[in-house]
Amino acid sequence: MPQRRTMFAAGAIAATAAGITLAGGVPAQAIANGEPVPDGKYAFSTKLTMTGIPVLGGGTRNSACSGALITREWVITAGHCFRDENGVRVERPVAASTVATVGRTDLVTGTGGHDVEIVEVRQSATADVALARLAEPITDIRPLAVSRRAPKVGEVLRLTGYGSLTSANATPATHLQTGQLVVESLADSTLGVRGRSPNPDTTPCPYDSGGPFFRESRGHAPQLVAVVSDGPSCPHTELEIPARTDNIAGWIRGVTGR
C-alpha cells in the first residue's frame, strides 16, 4: 500500500483492502518527520504484517499496515488494508498470513508485546475503516478508547504508526513513530488534517495506513477519532485525509461488543 493517493501502502509491499467499494477510498503510509515513541508508550499501537497476498494474474506479494488495539480481541485499521486481487475491499484476511504485532515499540530489539494472527475482518459501509479480530485476546494492554465526539477544527491529534519515513523507496519502520497534526476541516466520513509537530511536514507515509489519530488530554485516556486513509506523497505540508471513526462508533461497538 505505498502511494497513498491510490490507497496502497507504498512500494513493492502493498496492503490490500476489502469487498465493499468506497468512493475516494485509497491506502495511506508511515510517519515522515515524526519522532520515535519511547519504549512502552502507546502500547495499543499495532503493526499488521501481511505475507502472501494474491496478485492478479498469479503470484503473491507482501505488505504492511498500522492500526490500534481497541478491545482485547479487535484491532482497527484502514479498510483498504484488506483488498482482493481486483482491489476490492473484502471482509476476510486476504494474505496467507496476517499477523498483528501489538505492544512492541521496537520491532528489532523489543521482546515484549504480542504477535497474533488475524482471523476475521469486518468493513465499514461508510468509511475506509476495517476491524480485524485476533485469534486470541490480549489481556495485558489497555485498548485505545473509541470516541463518539467529533474532533473540532483547531484540535490537535496525535498519530502513531509503523510506516515508512518517506515515500521514496518506502520501507516499513522498525520503531514506532509518532507526530501531531491539527484538524482543519470535517466531512461526513473524513477529516482534513495538517502537520504540526515536531515539524510542519510531519505526515503519514506508506504502511501507516490504518494508524490511529487520537486526542490526548491531561488526566484522561487517549481517544480514537480517525485512522490514516489517504494523502499526498510524504513528507508534505498539504492536507492529509484520515477516515473518521467517531461517527461510526455505534457500528464499531456492535461488531466488537465494546
Results as ranks from 00 to 15, higher is better:
4 R>S: 05
6 T>A: 04
12 A>Y: 15
17 A>V: 08
29 Q>K: 02
30 A>N: 07
31 I>A: 07
33 N>H: 04
41 K>V: 00
47 K>D: 07
51 T>C: 02
51 T>M: 05
56 L>H: 08
57 G>H: 07
57 G>D: 01
57 G>E: 06
59 G>Y: 11
60 T>A: 01
62 N>F: 04
64 A>C: 12
68 A>F: 01
71 T>N: 09
74 W>I: 09
76 I>A: 03
79 G>L: 02
80 H>Y: 12
88 V>C: 03
104 R>D: 05
107 L>K: 13
108 V>H: 10
110 G>L: 14
113 G>L: 00
116 V>A: 14
120 E>K: 02
127 A>Y: 10
133 R>C: 07
139 T>V: 15
141 I>Y: 15
145 A>V: 14
146 V>D: 00
147 S>Y: 06
148 R>W: 08
163 G>E: 01
163 G>R: 01
163 G>A: 12
165 L>I: 13
167 S>K: 09
169 N>T: 08
172 P>W: 02
176 L>D: 01
187 A>V: 09
187 A>R: 02
188 D>W: 07
195 G>F: 03
195 G>N: 09
197 S>I: 01
199 N>M: 05
209 S>A: 05
212 P>N: 09
226 A>V: 00
233 S>Q: 12
234 C>L: 06
242 P>F: 09
254 G>L: 08
255 V>M: 09
